[in-house]
Design a protein around this nucleic acid. Structure first.
Lengths: 332, 332
DNA sequence: TGACATTAGGAAAACGTTTTCCTAATATAT
DNA sequence: ATATATTAGGAAAACGTTTTCCTAATGTCA
């Protein structure tokens, strides 16, 4: 393995000079530069980033901790994170906790050992141990899809957008509107979307019917099961708001399995606008979240944090309703 | 930041002893161990992995290079990789090239600088520069979904499984069978699946019709467009084999947009068995690839390589046909 | 008891960088 | 021409570990 010392020897300079040329940290005369550069070219030398990290006390690596990277929603966000990190000269260390808190903590320890410069986290909850970890370690951290005021966050206004989605159903003449919600135990996105649904119903003076509401866990399966629970108790329903697209798809499959049609018999509206939403039939009317951009933004926030710049704690991204074919206008 | 020296001071031992306790590399008396362990507990000391990597010349990190991690297929594989890596004490450095060769090479350089112990690659092609890179760097590498004899690979027998899929269509009475293929310029999975289709047709003495074949690029959109090309030239077709599920879904959407039904008018068979295949309606008959397990296996192969153990070059995983609702039996 | 083997643990070098502190040479001002 | 400021570049310490080589103490055997 060629090192900076080898280059120094070949070019008849000191290692310090090679380092300075590599990093442009000090001016260097033309002929010395020329000698060093040709030595580098000849040997194919690449500086050892590990040694560099050791002395600089930063690794140019960002940790990313998610609960399930095979979820299309998260993987899109990771892609945004990855691209933005790369553009800023950072690499990504990826961790998937599979919804396991203990594993999440182990990963945080590991990331600390590896000296990552900061972490981006999107997990189901923020347990107390996280608070303790970040208090102790002082590691810069950004949470996505959160609004916890203790932390820097990047998200969408879930409350407002869920409200808009349900209002759209009401504007289309729907009154018997169901809701498939998720993760209420937590303070964040799941609950906010549910609250948005409630607000829209209340504001338009519509009575909520407990039979039309069921809980899922953001998975397709759970969407299917939730819808099944609703349809086996009553079929007096014309529309349903699902708190994410995956659950919406599950609900649609269930509706079809009950020999009903979307949107003819039941309209469905989702949340997220994952890639498939546009491509399935019927295409899914849903709240478009700028998932990729949330990833990009979270890197920007994190890097500002790393560089100790002032930055907004709560970062809201614009979302919008994407109208497609899964909701129909109800004629009186 | 607490270091091994701080612990040494607190416990009145040498740094060497602390290191030996940390790694269990040499026996240590009970009272010394006790002193050191309590010092570690008290300070919350975590060893610095970067310093460790520098001296050991390995980082306990594996590089993963993909063309598009937001693709559900790859993200599932990454999850397998991630879990297997973690179980073996390795972290993952993730890179997404967005199909850009130049970027792929930059990432490989970066991974080398970061001293990853090996890489797992799943890109569209293996350009010559890769050969050069791996020849020069001696970096252990495993390619997934490949059969290039120059490299260690983990994949499924695409030729055989495509053959089985098309044979299944024929066994169900189909004769006018279309094909949406992809990536023929390459030696690997795309071409193999196409060849499997051809073999099945030939073996059962069915004439291929050029109008029923169209090229895509593994994306939903391209599946839609390919099917559209076929259906606008002829509707004399009863089944289509798509070289991946995404293209199959695109094809289904297109068929529906042509006011035809799946499987009533046209049967569709896919390849991959991505998570949505089971959950959409009609559920998709497809070749089940053990995607997660391919990820796990590729880590195992890579770690064997890292440890210079003998191992098979080409590793084939079992695949199987998953029969669902998108193919119907054609009555004579 | 004496000779030797085994053991626990320390001192210091090593890993490949960056950076501080120098020094010698040159440029600038008087 | 002299005094001073500026510059390019070198020597060596530093980062936090691991490991080699020692040494002193203990254990074992005759």
């Amino acid at each position: 393995m060629t090192t900076i010392k080898d280059i120094a020897k070949i070019a008849h300079v000191s290692p310090a000079t090679v380092s300075r040329i590599l990093n442009g940290s000090k001016p260097v005369s033309a002929d010395v530069r020329e000698r060093v550069e040709s030595a580098i070219k000849k040997t194919g030398f690449r500086p050892n980033n590990v040694a560099r990290s050791l002395i600089l006390k930063r690794s140019s690596t960002l940790g990313v901790l998610m609960t399930d990277i095979s979820n299309i929603y998260y993987s899109k966000m990771i892609r945004g994170i990855e691209q933005a990190a790369y553009d800023n000269g950072y690499a990504i260390m990826l961790a998937d906790s599979n919804f396991d808190h203990e594993m999440e903590l182990k990963y945080l320890d590991l990331m600390q050992e590896k000296c990552v410069d900061g972490v981006i986290i999107c997990t189901k909850e923020i347990p107390d141990q996280f608070d303790e970890f970040f208090r102790k370690s002082k590691m810069p951290v950004v949470f996505t899809n959160r609004k916890n005021p203790k932390y820097y966050t990047v998200s969408v206004d879930n409350y407002k957008m869920a409200y808009e989605a349900v209002t759209y159903l009401i504007d289309n003449g729907h009154e018997k509107i169901g809701c498939i919600y998720a993760h209420l135990e937590d303070l964040d996105s799941g609950l906010d979307r549910y609250e948005g649904y409630k607000k829209a119903m209340k504001e338009r003076k519509l009575k909520r019917n407990p039979l039309l509401e069921a809980e899922g866990d953001f998975s397709i399966e759970s969407g299917y099961n939730a819808m099944n629970k609703i349809l086996t108790s009553t079929q007096d329903i014309t529309a349903v708001f699902a708190a994410c697209d995956e659950m919406a798809f599950g609900a649609i499959s269930c509706i079809i399995d009950h020999n009903l049609k979307v949107p003819d018999d039941i309209s469905v509206i989702g949340y997220d606008d994952i890639r498939y939403a546009e491509y399935f039939r019927p295409s899914l009317t849903t709240v478009h979240q700028p998932i990729y951009e949330i990833g990009v933004k979270s890197v920007q926030v994190l890097l500002n944090l790393v560089q100790k710049k002032e930055i907004e704690k709560r970062n809201l991204m614009d979302a919008s309703l994407k109208i497609r074919d899964s909701v129909r206008m109800l004629s009186k």
